[in-house]
Design a protein around this nucleic acid. Structure first.
Length: 625
RNA sequence: GCCCCGGUAGCUCAAUUGGAUAGAGCUUUGGUCUUCGGAACCAAAGGUUGCAGGUUCGAGUCCUGCCCGGGGUACCA
């Protein structure tokens, strides 16, 4: 996420940072203050100017002079006359803050640099390769609310990285292997025989039911039953007859599942055919749901657990041989510094675990795919698991890139979606809420709300608008707060359309677009005029311009930190700045043609940044709503 | 027990990673508008940032100890 050199910078922060750094190094060469960060920041309060330099306090400490004296020296030494109003003693405030106000013409120049095809985010010469682990579909299960955050946040992080110039490889770590799947396969073969599974298996709902059935059938083996069985009392055994029968049946089913798992691992045609069918049926449905949420998760992003099956044994053996792993209580573990619980990579019965797969995944992603960064967009409850796996991979040397540099592993953890009761979000019957159901209800509500405000909405457009607003509401809610925090799911709040919501941002886009539509109706050549020179006069124009200039760095920050809520907050502020501008600065009815053209340019740029930003959030765009 | 995460206005959340008087939205009250979409804009009201110490020019942010809530804690994924 490199920043452009200040010479071509469009971000005032970059320009000011460079100029003040220059002044500091000239003034304090050879002193402890020489390398002091200029500490340039956008001012929170307009009365402190547009930007501020906060370095004088730290410098004062370093060179043993009063901070205000340092500030005085700084503002005399720094050369920013080309972009800022002249600095005088009046610009020094408080303990030594230097307040800076940009010149209107400089603002226009900077804005024109933003007005390029890439909106200030040119592709860097060296594109960093990043793997984003997202979505996490499970075979034989519908996409439900438990997949929402990984899909939406992961997709947005991937988009931000890509927009900031990274080469992104999305990886859907599909849960397509292991005993649970074997249980389903075993159950299906018992129920339908060994014939072609395509003949009886058509949709995911069948599998969803089969999965639950298989889970239930294999359960029933608890410690109480075990105790009764072993106590040898005929009386107790008679009383517990049903439970014992159930347990015996469950054990048989479980044994069947384990046999099936072995068969699957040996690529037996019957089991493999059922597995393939389950895979096809599941993915067709789940990828369609992902697409409806405008998440870019496609078949080629799938890298299921099954694809690591062949690597597990050799990796564990290798780690044992190299002394990275050790035997412990019959199992194989990798001990990780600073964590009490070791990372378990082979069970005492010889089977592998999900940690084994994840260690192999790191090896593949870094050493084969060449990822300099791997971002895991996974539930925060997996935090310990990833600390263990990252530590194990590190010890194994799997985080070393082919060139020798070390890859960065990051768990972009997110909190839980809660119901109104504060417990994890479920249906009244305790089921997981399906994403299709969620989306459908959101669309119905969105349509009703849209029609109540805009009854003239063309029937042909209604479906598109309802979908865009629903996706905007759902995604924005999920993205707009810090991802580590839990949130309570509420249709009412996300579709309230007032304040900080996805629909509000769409509304801002619709309003700016309607200006151009109106322009066309009135015969104004908006395309030509909006290419006119920018001119910043009114306070509302200036505030909008300052907001626009922050866009590229905001996207880079989101890519760096994997925190989409920063982009949400930015876009909300931009939408707010535009709303004020829209309120106070007539565009088509501007007092003269020059002003109209300049304002059309500002509108065009606002439209482009809003659309681009909404695109990074994965929110579908509309012209009307 | 140990580990991780959270605690900010009545409610939902921010706070540019240590900067000025902690900001938005919702709610409430009042106001703006013969004008490009009122899903708007402006203003008022609302705070011991869980508690107590510490670090320093400066702490919601960092360090220590407590309190409350959630989660995780060796052979499920």
């Amino acid at each position: 996420m490199s920043t452009p050199s200040a010479e071509f910078a469009l971000n005032p922060l970059d320009v000011l940072r460079e100029r003040f750094a220059g002044a500091i190094s000239r003034l304090y060469a050879g002193t402890p203050g020489e390398g002091q960060d200029p500490l340039i920041a956008a001012s929170k309060n307009p009365k402190f100017g547009d930007y501020q330099c906060n370095a004088a306090m730290a410098l004062g400490k370093l060179v043993g002079k009063p901070p205000r004296e340092v500030a005085e020296a700084l503002l005399k030494a720094v050369e920013i006359g080309d972009i800022a109003e002249p600095l005088t003693g009046a610009n020094i405030a408080g303990p030594g803050f230097i307040n800076i106000t940009l010149r209107a013409d400089a603002l226009a120049t900077l804005l024109s640099r933003l007005d390029t095809a890439d909106l200030g985010l040119p592709a860097p010469a060296k594109r960093e390769r990043v793997v984003v682990d997202l979505c996490g579909v499970n075979l034989a299960k519908q996409m439900h609310v438990g997949h929402l955050r990984s899909t939406v946040i992961g997709d947005t992080i991937a988009r931000a990285l890509s927009r900031a110039g990274a080469e992104v490889i999305r990886q859907n770590h599909v849960g397509d292997w292991g005993l649970p799947i074997a249980m389903v396969i075993a159950a299906l073969i018992r129920e339908h025989g060994t014939g072609d599974p395509a003949k009886y298996l058509h949709e995911l709902d069948q599998l969803d039911r089969a999965y639950k059935r298989a889970q239930a059938e294999c359960k029933g083996h608890d410690e109480l039953v075990e105790a009764v069985r072993h106590c040898g009392s005929p009386k107790l055994a008679a009383e517990w007859e049903d439970e014992l029968k159930q347990a015996t049946a469950a054990e048989a089913k479980l044994a069947d599942a384990k046999r099936t798992l072995m068969a699957l691992q040996n690529r037996e045609p019957t089991e493999l055919a059922v597995w393939k069918r389950i895979y096809a049926v599941t993915m067709a449905e789940c990828l369609r749901v992902a697409a409806e949420l405008s998440a870019d998760v496609r078949d080629e992003h799938s890298a299921g657990e099954s694809s690591y099956a062949e690597e597990l044994g050799p990796v564990v053996d290798e780690l044992l041989r190299r002394g990275v792993a050790e035997e412990s209580q019959g199992a194989v573990v990798v001990r990780v510094e600073g964590i009490a619980e070791p990372c378990l990579i082979r069970k005492s019965d010889g089977a592998f675990l999900y940690a084994t797969t994840d260690v192999c995944a790191i090896r593949r992603r870094v050493q084969k795919l060449g990822a300099a960064r791997v971002v895991y967009c996974v539930d925060a409850r997996q935090s310990l698991h990833f600390r263990q796996v990252f530590g194990a991979a590190e010890r194994a040397g799997y985080t070393a890139l082919p060139g020798g540099e070390k890859a960065t592993l990051m768990h972009a953890a997110f909190g839980t979606i809660l119901g109104e009761d504060g417990r994890p979000f479920k249906t009244r019957t305790g089921e997981n809420v399906r994403l299709t159901a969620l989306l459908q209800e959101a669309e119905e509500r969105a349509l009703a709300a849209a029609l109540s405000r805009n009854p003239d909405l063309e029937p042909a457009e209604q479906k598109k608008v309802a979908h865009a607003v629903a996706v905007a509401a759902i995604r924005y809610t999920d993205l707009s707060t810090e991802r580590i925090k839990d949130y309570v799911f509420s249709f009412d709040r996300m579709l309230a359309f007032e304040g900080n919501t996805g629909p509000y941002l769409l509304y801002a886009l619709v309003r700016v677009r309607s200006i151009f539509r109106k322009a066309a109706e009135r015969g104004v050549d908006a395309v030509k005029e909006s290419g006119a020179a920018l001119r910043i006069g009114e306070p509302a124009e200036k505030a909008l311009a300052l907001a626009l200039l922050r866009y590229p760095q905001t996207v880079r920050d989101v890519a760096q930190t994997c925190e989409p809520h920063r982009l949400c907050a930015y876009l909300y502020e931009l939408a707010g700045a535009f709303a004020v501008f829209f309120d106070q600065c007539p565009v088509l009815a501007a007092k003269d043609e020059g002003t109209r053209a300049a304002r059309l340019s500002l509108c065009r740029l606002t439209e482009r940044v809003l659309a681009d930003g909404l695109g990074v959030l994965g929110i579908p765009l509309v012209d009307r709503m």
